[in-house]
Nucleic acid binder design. Structure first.
Lengths: 106, 106
DNA sequence: ACAATATGTGGCTATTTTGCCAAATATGAT
DNA sequence: ATCATATTTGGCAAAATAGCCACATATTGT
C-alpha cells in the first residue's frame, strides 16, 4: 500500500468512525432533513450542550458536515449527502437479519 | 424515540463503528473482492494473527460478515454488499475536499 | 496418538473515547 | 457597559478499544 492509499484509507475510516456513535448518527439523520443550529440539536438530544458540541466537532473533523455562523447561532449542514443513502443501506442489511437483530442491537 | 427506533439506531452505529478502523475497513475492502480465510488476510495485514481474528469478530458481531468453516480454514464473506458502494461514496466526499485532504488523513 | 496448521480466547497494558462540569468566548439586546 | 444567549474549550474520571502474548481449541494428515 502506498502512502497516499494509506492516507485515504485512514480518512475513510475516520469518517465511518465518526458515524459510528448513536448520538452522532442521530445528528446526521437529523441534519439530513436540513441544516440546524446546535441549540436545536441539543433540544432533541438528551445530553449536555458541551457533549453535543464535541460530537459535532468530530463530524466536522471527519469532513462530514460544514458550518455557517449566523448571528449568535452556528448552523451545521450535512456535506456528504450520500451518507443518508448509505445509512438506509446499512439499515436494510441489519433488518435482513431479523433473527439476529435483537442481539446486534445490544 | 421508541425503544425499537433506539435499538435500530444503536445497531446501525455499531455497524458503522466496526467499519471505522483502518484495518477493519481494509479487510472489508479485501472481502468485497471475494471471500477469504483468516490466514489469507493475515498475510495482507501487518498484525498479529490474534489481532486480525479479533477485528474479524467485531465485523461479525456487527452483522457485516458471515463465516463458513471448510476444513481447518474459516472463510469470511461480506454480507452487506452495499457497504462497498458506500465506501466509494465516502471516498468521493473526501476527495471533493482536496484541500482539506491532508488534514483529514492525519 | 501425535504433530502441524488454522483459528479463537483470556489477560494485560497503553491509548482513546465519552460525557459531565466549569470556565472562556462570541454575538446580540438593553 | 452589562446582561443574556449560543457555542466552544479545558480538564477530569470512567469506560471502551487496540494489540500483543501465551494458551486453548479444532481439524487434518501421518
Amino acid at each position: 500500500m502506498t502512502g497516499a492509499e494509506r492516507s485515504l484509507l485512514v480518512a475513510k475510516a475516520k469518517a465511518l468512525k465518526a458515524l459510528g456513535h448513536p448520538t452522532r448518527l442521530f445528528m446526521v439523520e437529523e441534519l439530513s432533513k436540513g441544516e440546524c443550529c446546535v441549540c436545536s440539536l441539543v433540544e432533541r438530544i438528551d445530553a449536555d450542550f458541551s457533549t453535543v458540541s464535541k460530537h459535532l466537532s468530530v463530524l466536522k473533523e471527519a469532513g462530514l458536515v460544514e458550518i455557517e455562523k449566523r448571528g449568535q447561532k452556528v448552523f451545521y449542514r450535512l456535506r456528504a449527502t450520500c451518507v443518508t443513502q448509505f445509512i438506509g443501506c446499512i439499515e436494510t442489511a441489519i433488518r435482513e437479519n431479523a433473527e439476529r437483530y435483537a442481539k446486534l442491537a445490544r
